[in-house]
Simulated assay, not measured.
Amino acid sequence: MAQQRGLWDWHNVHLIHSKTVEDLAFRHVVRLAQRTGVGMYFVHVTASDGADVISEARASGMPVYGEVLTLALSFEAERYKESDGMKYHTYPSLKFEEDRNVLWDGIMKGDLSPARMSATSGGGNVGIEIRMGVNYTEAVVKRGMSLERFVDVTSANAAKLLGMYPRKGCIAAGSDADFAIIDPEFRKALELSDLHVRDYNPWEGWDVEGWPTTVILRGKIMVDNGQLLGDGNDGRLILRKVDQSVLNRPAF
C-alpha cells in the first residue's frame, strides 16, 4: 500500500506508522486495561494523538503513564529529508512540530515524563548522555520547570513506577548514594568530544545550558568533571516490586 501511494521512500515512515496508528493502538490497549483493572505504561509516545489518549485515561482516574524519548522532544519528521536524516530516526517514527509541542505540554503539566535513562534511543541513537543536559536546557531554562519538578520527572517518578523507590530516586538514609550533579553555568554547542560514545549524534551542535559534570553511583564517582571513571562491571541487579498505589490510580 505504501508503494502504491507513492510513500515507498524511507523518509515517509511517519506517514506509514502514522498518528492514527498511535491513536488506535493506544485506545485499544487502554480499553483492555480498563476491563482488566491493570496499570498501563506507554513508552515512546510520539504524537498528540497518543498524548490525548493518556490524558483522557488519567483524567478518568486510570493508572496510565506515558514517557517520551528526548529525540521526539527535540526533532520532527521534516528532519528525515536532510541528507543524513536517518540519524534522527527512532521507533515509532518522529511526527510533526505540533506533536513535539504537545509532548512538551504533557511533560510540563504532568501527564508525560521524559524517557527513563536507557543506553540508546530507538534506531541506535546515542541517547543516554544528552538526556539530562538537553532536557534541563529545554525544560528548566527555556520553559521554567522548577528544579523540584525536574528531579521528579527525571528520577523520582521513574523509580516509583518501576518499583525501585526509595532505594533509587531520592536522597535519604538507606537509599543508594546516586547523584547526577548538573553545572548550570555550562554553556556551549555540543560536540562529539563532549560525549563518551562518539559514533554519531543528532544533538551535535545543540546549544545547552547546564550539563551533568559529576555522576556518582552508590557512592562511587563514575564521571568526574566529564571524565569517565566507571566501567561495565559497576551495575547491580535490583529486585523490585511496584507499589500498589502506582497501580490503583495516577500516582503523580
Rank of each mutant, 00 (worst) to 15 (best):
M1Y: 13
Q3N: 10
W8E: 13
W8Q: 13
D9Q: 15
D9W: 05
I16H: 10
H17I: 08
E22C: 06
E22D: 12
D23K: 14
L24C: 07
A25T: 11
A25Y: 12
H28R: 11
V29E: 15
R31I: 00
A33E: 13
Q34E: 15
G37F: 10
F42V: 06
F42N: 01
V45S: 00
S48L: 14
D49Q: 14
G50A: 03
A51V: 07
V53G: 00
E56H: 03
A57C: 03
A57H: 01
R58P: 01
P63R: 03
P63S: 09
V68A: 03
L69D: 09
Y80D: 01
S83C: 07
T90K: 02
Y91R: 10
P92F: 07
K95M: 04
D99C: 10
D99V: 04
D105A: 12
M108L: 15
K109I: 02
L112C: 02
S113P: 00
S121M: 14
I130K: 04
V134H: 04
V134P: 00
T137V: 08
T137P: 00
V140P: 09
D152G: 02
S155E: 04
A158C: 06
A159Y: 03
M164F: 15
K168D: 06
C170I: 13
I171T: 12
D178S: 13
F179E: 02
D183L: 05
A189I: 00
D194G: 02
L195C: 07
H196R: 12
H196G: 04
R198Q: 15
R198P: 03
Y200M: 10
G205W: 06
V208Y: 06
E209N: 10
E209P: 05
W211D: 01
P212V: 14
T213R: 12
L217Y: 11
D224F: 13
N225P: 02
L229G: 11
D231G: 15
R236V: 11
R236W: 05
I238K: 03
L239W: 07
Q244M: 08
Q244L: 08
V246K: 02
L247R: 09
N248V: 01
F252D: 15
